[in-house]
Design a binder for these strands. Sequence first.
DNA 1: TAACCCATGTAACCTGTTACATGATTAA
DNA 2: TTAATCATGTAACAGGTTACATGGGTTA
Lengths: 177, 177
Amino acid sequence: MALSHALLTALHEAPCSGYDLAKKFDGTVGFFWSASHQQIYRELTKLEEQAYISAVVVQQSNRPDKKVYEVTETGKDYLREWIAQPSTVAAIKDDLLVKLFAGNLVDPAVILDELEHHRSQHQDLLDTYKSIEQRFFADTCQLDVNRRYQYLTLRQGIRLETEWLAWCAEAIESFLG
Amino acid sequence: MALSHALLTALHEAPCSGYDLAKKFDGTVGFFWSASHQQIYRELTKLEEQAYISAVVVQQSNRPDKKVYEVTETGKDYLREWIAQPSTVAAIKDDLLVKLFAGNLVDPAVILDELEHHRSQHQDLLDTYKSIEQRFFADTCQLDVNRRYQYLTLRQGIRLETEWLAWCAEAIESFLG
DNA sequence: TAACCCATGTAACCTGTTACATGATTAA
DNA sequence: TTAATCATGTAACAGGTTACATGGGTTA
């Protein structure tokens, strides 16, 4: 049931429509829990049935109406309960690492290409995170409690992407040597 | 279809039974793609139907018979094709980071507990990885090609866990300061 | 006038989890 | 004699992906 928690968290931060939630990678909780728009709409329907969220239809000019959801008190209690329950660390599920395990089946050039490809993806992610840091967290002393928590998650994003990049470089180098 | 690839990779490394595969965290590909035993048995049945693997029933004394699977040539081709297809970096799906995003809903002590809890889990994982490194990869010069690939994955495990630990420490410290 | 954006949805399917079930052997 | 290990499975459900569908508005 973790998607429900991620959606409630996103709506708690800022009430919005399913469409807005689906545009996930917008510098919010979507970085740490992505989902397709079909999944999001399905889950929102459920959450509304359970009264964890409530919708207000907003009419727009020149655009379709939209349902803006916000978290109810019941929903907040549900979130609080979930947060208080200890969770286990997320399992790694990574294609690239599995591919390396079977690396001897293919030409090393294939693996090298894939490593380069991943390096550039991680570089892009890191750039994104860093630009968010500069735009929204330039003055770390002035942050309120919630922003402080969010900044911690961003710091971890930056840490992990930096480490992925370093590893890609190390791995690629081991091919050239 | 990524579980199929992970299972084929594991069987390519060492033919074994479904039961063996289910005991995943044994220093092999299971670190990077875990699955429950029910999922594994279901997938093995499919893979055998598709002729990507073949089974030999091994009779044992004092124990139930077991079906030992190995990858066929067709299965290897299938794996090779998959490896050659570029993949996107794995999406982060992490409970703890989502919880931090909604951190202002609960007492900071709740978050602090959870951070401590995660720190100890990451420490355990790091210890496991390091002991594998010492036991199987002490002499990095002597490794064959396949072992070299596997060592790269282990190095990344060590890197990421180290980074998680550092981040947990940083986050916990930010609570005390 | 073609392609894209806004906004929401259905249907079918695959992946993953939880609970239950069996039956022999072995260790405390 | 109770619990754990070996070994494989069924059933039901929840989570997640892919394809398809609609229909107005905007941009090139």
